[in-house]
Design a protein around this nucleic acid. Structure first.
Lengths: 204, 204
DNA sequence: TAAATTATTGTATGTGCGTTCAGTTTTTTG
DNA sequence: CAAAAAACTGAACGCACATACAATAATTTA
């Protein structure tokens, strides 16, 4: 009994350590430079350990991406919980997608690399889908009841792709600042929503 | 004299063939699967030929990306030349960024891979910058005189990143259609520009 | 403490890659 | 046609990598 408990604990620990080491290597050397040797070295372990705790390198990468996504989604969730007004919630959603200290070229590039790898690996596509669905549902929680469904989907797509595009630009080193990006997306959101409101008023 | 002329011709021909072969391999196997062997095989030549006409694999890749960018930019240019009205020009610019038959997952993924590789390779960053600058200048040719400079830059960034984001989504296989994307970006452009106009009217 | 299980190591192995280069064929020159 | 230059070949090399695995160390169990 205690045996199993301990085993699980150390296994989880090692897996976590390897994932975090993989993350650091990823940040520093990019997807191409993320070798098993470097990961194990970064984790302070020997080369063979990776095969012991993971199915292979791909498995580590996937676990890493999943962990990152989870962290980001939780950040948005806590931001949402703190917001009180409808517009505050919108800002929280958008700002949550440009976390200060994380909106940096190397991190953006890591994310981009994973997107690029998505075409090969079905699991990544699924992960991305989940991520986008969450954004969509967050936006829906703010505006679905105010907008017609078709137009809402359009606006959600517009805002979502803008966020992605800004990250992409950041990945190439463009000098974008997280607060500016939030402001930009927010301003577009405002323009689209006021327009939609006016259209709805005219219809009535 | 004839010697030099002929030499130049066959060299250009082979280089072009290799670039196009590289492009096909890229499309089919992705950036990771684009090996020198496959490229030469696809071009119907032997393995060593690549080093004969190019400095190395990277050189071929770069030439390929440059060629693609040129083609896309020219497509936009011709579309622009045909447009007569101001709004027609705007639509031509946007539609030119979603060319029918080219707005497909594998092509999108190829572009995405290059973006991801940009962080390592300075030449790609330069290429991307040129591309974005061209988009910016095209948009400027339509709207700069109507808008304040700061707001124009914001709007141009918003539209540009949306276009990128839509390509990114397409890369992961999302079912987006080129005409829908054009319509979406155009609708956002309209919303932003009418808003900007109203703001300017109120100021007067 | 002895046995047994688990955790870790580091070398070995095989694979796939980009690049090189000595040689061969083709084309051009005189 | 002979000599020279250019175009091209394909085997060979070295390197970096992921993974496997036998050996060893640490820990738990009885």
């Amino acid at each position: 009994m205690t045996k199993i408990a301990f085993r699980t604990r150390i296994e989880d620990l090692r897996r976590r350590e390897l994932i975090e080491a993989a993350h650091r290597v990823f940040m520093q050397h990019g997807l191409g430079g993320m070798t098993t040797k470097r990961i194990c070295e970064e984790a302070g372990m020997s080369a063979g350990i990776l095969s012991y705790y993971f199915k292979g390198k791909e498995d580590v990468l996937f676990a890493m991406v999943r962990l990152n996504n989870r962290v980001l989604m939780e950040a948005v969730a806590t931001g949402l919980a703190q917001a009180t007004t409808r517009w505050g919630r919108l800002e929280a959603i958008i700002a949550g997608n440009f976390p200060e200290g994380l909106f940096e070229p190397n991190i953006a590039n890591a994310w981009l690399s994973v997107c690029a790898a998505s075409s090969t690996n079905i699991r990544y596509v699924r992960l991305q889908r989940i991520f986008y669905a969450r954004l969509q549902s967050n936006l829906a929680s703010v505006f679905r009841d105010v907008l017609a469904d078709a137009r809402f989907k359009q606006i959600a797509l517009a805002l979502g792709t803008m966020i992605d595009g800004l990250w992409l630009r950041r990945a190439t080193g463009e000098a974008l600042i997280s607060t500016d990006c939030t402001a930009l997306v927010l301003s577009v959101a405002v323009a689209l929503l006021t327009e939609a409101e006016q259209a709805q008023l005219q219809a009535a």
